[in-house]
C-alpha cells in the first residue's frame, strides 16, 4: 500500500478544532458535523481539520496523548502524529521536541520489527500475533517481509515435491 494511502486512512480519525467562523450543522454521507461556532471546540475528521487549518479557519487542539511525557509510554497513531506535525505544528506545544521523540521511538520500533521479521523467517514460523503494530509499521515492513516469505516458500516447496504449480507470488 502506498504510504499516502496510510495517511489517507489516518485522515479518517477525529480531532478537536476551535473554529473562527460559524456554520450550521452539515450532513455528510459519512455522518453529521458541527454546528461550528467561533471559539467553541468541535470534533471533525482530520481531513477537514487540516483543510480548515490551511485556510486559517481554525486552530487544531492536539490530542491529549501528544505530549512529551505521554508519548514515551503509550502506543500512538503514527499517521495522525505525522499529519499534525506537518500541517499544524504551530498548534502543538513543544512540536520540535515531539518530532524528535517520535522519530526516536519510530527508529527503535522499526529496528525491533526488523529483528522480529528476521527471526520469523529464520524459524519458519507460520503465525505471529502483532497487536502492538500500527498500520504504518505494518506497511513499512509489508512488501519486504511478504515477498521474502513467498520466496522462501517457493524455494522450499520446490525442494519438497520436486514440482511446483505456477503460482503468482505477489498480490
Amino acid at each position: 500500500m502506498d504510504p499516502l494511502e496510510v495517511e489517507f486512512l489516518a485522515e479518517k480519525e477525529t480531532v478537536k478544532i476551535i473554529p473562527n467562523f460559524s456554520l450550521d450543522k452539515i450532513y455528510l454521507i459519512g455522518g453529521d458535523l458541527g454546528p461550528f461556532n467561533p471559539g467553541l471546540p468541535v470534533d471533525v475528521p482530520v481531513w477537514l481539520a487540516l483543510n480548515l487549518k490551511q485556510r486559517q479557519k481554525c486552530r487544531i487542539v492536539p490530542p491529549e496523548w501528544m505530549e512529551v511525557e505521554k508519548l514515551e509510554e503509550i502506543p500512538f497513531s503514527m499517521g495522525l502524529t505525522k499529519l499534525l506535525l506537518t500541517h499544524a505544528s504551530d498548534n502543538i506545544p513543544k512540536a520540535d521536541e515531539i518530532r524528535t521523540l517520535v522519530k526516536d521511538i519510530w527508529d527503535t520500533r522499526i529496528a525491533k520489527l526488523r529483528l522480529s521479521a528476521d527471526s520469523f523467517i529464520r524459524e519458519q514460523e507460520a503465525h505471529a500475533k502483532l497487536d502492538n503494530l500500527t498500520l504504518m509499521e505494518i506497511n513499512t515492513i509489508r512488501t519486504f517481509l511478504l515477498d521474502s516469505l513467498n520466496c522462501m516458500y517457493k524455494l522450499r516447496s520446490n525442494l519438497q515435491q520436486g514440482s511446483s504449480k505456477g503460482q503468482f507470488s505477489n498480490y
Partner: peptide
C-alpha cells in the same frame, strides 16, 4: 495452465 494461479499460501496481515 499458462497463466499462474493466485498464491493462496501468501502471508497476510
Amino acid at each position: 495452465k499458462a497463466v499462474p494461479e493466485p498464491c493462496l499460501d501468501s502471508f497476510v496481515f
